[in-house]
C-alpha cells in the first residue's frame, strides 16, 4: 500500500475518532456550530478521505510509466482536504457563536481549499476510470 494511501487512511481514522468524540459532546448538549463539523468529519474527513486513499491505491493503472497518475497531485489533494477541513472545524463553531471577520474569512478560505481538493482528486483519477 503506497505511503499516500496509508496517510489518507490513517488521517481518515483520526477524523472518525474525532467525530465520535464530537458525537458525545453533541449528546451532552454542546451544539454551537458543532453539528456540521461532526457530519463533515464523518462524510468528508473519514468516508471520502478513505475512498480517496483506496482509489489512489487500487484503481486501474493510468499508464505503465505513471500507474497512479500524479503522486504530487495526490499529495496536494491530501493537504487541501485536511487543511480545509481543519480550518472549518476551528472556524465554524466560532462563527456560529461569536461571528467575526476572521472566522468568516477562514470559512471562505476553507471552502476554497476543500473544493480544490475535490477538483484535483477528480482530475487525477479521471483517466484511471477506464475499461480494460
Amino acid at each position: 500500500m503506497p505511503l499516500l494511501t496509508r496517510t489518507f487512511i490513517k488521517t481518515g481514522m483520526v477524523c472518525l475518532a474525532l467525530a465520535l468524540v464530537l458525537g458525545i459532546l453533541l449528546a451532552l448538549g454542546v451544539t454551537n456550530g458543532l453539528f456540521p463539523v461532526y457530519i463533515h468529519l464523518l462524510v468528508f474527513g473519514w468516508l471520502t478521505q478513505l475512498i480517496f486513499g483506496v482509489i489512489f491505491w487500487m484503481f486501474p493503472k493510468y499508464s505503465v510509466k505513471k500507474p497512479r497518475g500524479s503522486e504530487a497531485l495526490g499529495w496536494w489533494t491530501y493537504a487541501l482536504l485536511n487543511i480545509g477541513l481543519l480550518l472549518r472545524a476551528v472556524a465554524e463553531p466560532i462563527q456560529s457563536t461569536r461571528a467575526n471577520p476572521l472566522s468568516g474569512w477562514m470559512l471562505v478560505l476553507s471552502a476554497i481549499l476543500q473544493f480544490l481538493s475535490g477538483l484535483l482528486f477528480v482530475v487525477n483519477s479521471w483517466g484511471r476510470v477506464k475499461e480494460k
Binding site: 471520502t48 472549518r88 472556524a91 465554524e92 462563527q95 471577520p101 472566522s103 468568516g104 474569512w105 477562514m106 470559512l107 471562505v108 476553507s110 471552502a111 476554497i112 476543500q114 473544493f115 481538493s117 475535490g118 477538483l119 482528486f121 477528480v122 483519477s125 479521471w126 476510470v129 477506464k130 475499461e131
Partner: peptide
Amino acid sequence: SVWFVRASLLYLLLGSLFGALLLAQKGI
C-alpha cells in the same frame, strides 16, 4: 462501472462546489 464511477466523480465535483458556496456564504 466506468459510467457509475465517472458519474460519481462529476457529482463529487458539483456537490463540493455547492458545499464550498454554502460554506463561504456562512462565512462572508
